[in-house]
Design a binder for these strands. Structure first.
Lengths: 242, 242
DNA sequence: ATGCAATAGTTGTATATACAACTATTGCTA
DNA sequence: TAGCAATAGTTGTATATACAACTATTGCAT
């Protein structure tokens, strides 16, 4: 959660000092997740700066994912501390689209099931609670290239919203009902199980990229999506190194 | 390269309009890479806004990686167009460190070799030109967990800088000589070849995450690093979904 | 107690201004 | 011609201000 961007022996700019102060509070644990940080006006007084300078500190930390701001309400410590941003990976469907390939998707099922132990942990549910489970198979030029398995927390999402996942990403169908605040992802190289191999028409020795995406609203974990894709290369972003 | 963040039928804010205008120029190809975009003052006049508003547009596009700014010189279209930021993956060494595991690394070699065809393409060299090649094996609690193979463009980096890669990332050893402006990454699931399997002490059926990182200076591609890691899970960042 | 209106507080957008820091060019001088 | 100084232009930091948009609370009226 480093903030400094300056040479030695130079006094950092005021907005940098405020950023460092806030980061220190968060790193030390004094300001936990969801803690309401001082408002722009309070920082203005504390650090004897103009509101625009205090604002700049809050805004940059928000862009870094460390804080979350809400107009009319305040600024809060984000649920997960930000991490150094070195790489980016883009939304897989976007990537396919913009490469000019012909993309379509087919929803194989949508039903209510009892969660497995692993899914229960990731969705923060008790064993055997029910979730909505859907499978969507994505095609590129009529070849299956990615399987999406989505588990949606039934307690947080009304059933009538759960219909067609072939075109929608979570924030598209949930934004009104339960605003998503964050998403976490885990990426891993795996060998798919037999069922997935069959759907994707690959052998069980072919390495696949697997992305587990969890989306959050303020009420808890809303959904878990497991994306499995063989052979794909993903071009990652191009942040400036410094 | 979408910019909009607003509801339908609402007039976007002025700084959003300027961002859209710039994005449109870049997307259409009218403003190619390294094109010098209008200065803050020029945008101020063109759009009849204050300098701070024009500045905000340029600054946000810079944070998105679409533009690059240089004090005293100007603002330029970045080398690679930015992509929608949905995921982040953090620097692998950082990740290991912060998990509290004991990490160390061993440099297996450093020598000058003729490039293979694939490396030549990625480094933008001709076949059989020479590069510096190093292999660094990373350990976590004395177990090999990642192999880093780095190819450095000899024409852009003086030899005396190439010594110990076990502790350094590219921008640490290159920042003075050839400022790195950008880094691109490709991520893939692979099966490692026999040599790599032996170094990492894994079987040749174990899927590995492989990240290819290319770093750039203004003079061209500086280095290619190929990171191969079996079994690892990488926690990805937590950008707000919206 | 419930519902609603007013209010205070917070973030969002926008302007105008000033000076500092840095870069690239111009033009002069040796 | 080569080197240096002055200069114009650009981005960086910082302040002061105004109003808009939104939220949460307070307090009143029913």
């Amino acid at each position: 959660m480093s903030v400094t961007n300056l040479k030695f022996n130079e006094k950092p700019a005021k907005y940098i000092i405020i950023k460092q102060h806030i980061c220190q509070k968060i790193e030390s644990g004094q300001w936990p997740q969801h803690y309401k940080v001082p408002s722009e006006n309070e920082l203005t007084q504390q650090f004897d700066v103009s509101r625009m300078t205090a604002r700049r500190a809050l805004q940059e930390l928000t862009e870094q994912g460390i804080l979350v701001r809400s107009q009319g309400s305040g600024t809060y410590v984000a649920t997960f501390k930000s991490q150094s941003s070195l790489l980016e990976i883009r939304n897989i469907s976007d990537e396919i689209h913009e490469r000019g390939h012909k993309h379509h998707a087919k929803q194989l099922m949508l039903k209510s099931i009892a969660v497995t132990e692993e899914v229960a942990i990731l969705l923060n549910l008790k064993n055997n609670e029910h979730v909505f489970f859907s499978q969507v198979l994505h095609f590129e030029n009529d070849q299956a290239i990615q399987l999406e398995q989505r588990y949606v927390n039934a307690a947080l999402v009304p059933e009538y919203l759960l219909q067609d996942f072939t075109q929608t990403t979570p924030h598209e169908y949930l934004s009104d009902v339960a605003p998503l605040t964050e998403a976490t992802h885990e990426i891993e190289a795996v060998l798919a199980d037999d069922e997935v191999c069959q759907l994707l028409n690959i052998s069980n020795s072919e390495p696949c990229l697997q992305v587990k995406r969890r989306t959050w609203s303020r009420k808890g974990v809303v959904s878990l999506a497991i994306l499995t894709a063989p052979g794909s290369k993903y071009r990652l972003g191009n942040h400036l190194v410094f």
